[in-house]
């Protein structure tokens, strides 16, 4: 009887582990600055939407669904890049989060903690606070940088400004 209880307890614990890393969670790529640089210098026909976020950043998490929605709505006109600034050793956490929020496919982790070496290359006006988003129209070279949390309406306005 006692043994059975222990076994049940064991089964309970292995089945209700909080936030498990599922086998189906997509593996998130960990990249260096050169990967970001090639997005910044992209010669794509599409608008490059580059959002900087992290799992620990509450305002980032609030706006992420709008980026996913815009990614669907403007599928043929934009490339969405969700650049996570979580530490590279948090890849499992980012991966589980990305799966839960259906972000996968667009997320990479930028593993460059010497921040001062690259922040100005994204935009000289960027303080380093997140959320922050850079929109680039590679055809015209036009760039819009936003260092704040965005609504879906804000996002659509910026996209339309670049698309028209």
């Amino acid at each position: 009887m006692k043994n059975r209880f222990i076994i049940l307890l064991f089964i309970f614990f292995i089945t209700v582990r909080p936030d498990p890393v599922n086998a189906q969670d997509q593996e998130i790529q960990v990249v260096k600055f050169d990967a970001l640089e090639s997005i910044l210098n992209s010669d794509s026909e599409k608008i490059q939407v580059i959002n900087f976020w992290a799992t620990w950043c509450a305002p980032c998490i609030k706006e992420l669904p709008y980026f996913v929605k815009a990614g669907d709505e403007y599928e043929n006109q934009i490339d969405l890049h969700l650049i996570s600034l979580d530490y590279a050793d948090q890849a499992d956490k980012v991966s589980a989060f990305a799966s839960r929020k259906s972000l996968d496919g667009n997320v990479v982790i930028l593993d460059e903690v010497d921040y001062n070496s690259w922040i100005d290359k994204v935009d000289p006006s960027w303080s380093g606070a997140i959320p922050a988003t850079l929109f680039i129209n590679p055809k015209t070279g036009e760039r819009i940088f936003m260092e704040r949390q965005m609504t879906y309406e804000d996002l659509v306005n910026e996209l339309n400004a670049l698309l028209n």
Partner: peptide, 9 residues
């Protein structure tokens, strides 16, 4: 001066 990623105020 040196910039860093951080939480927004």
């Amino acid at each position: 001066s040196a910039k860093a990623i951080g939480c927004s105020i």
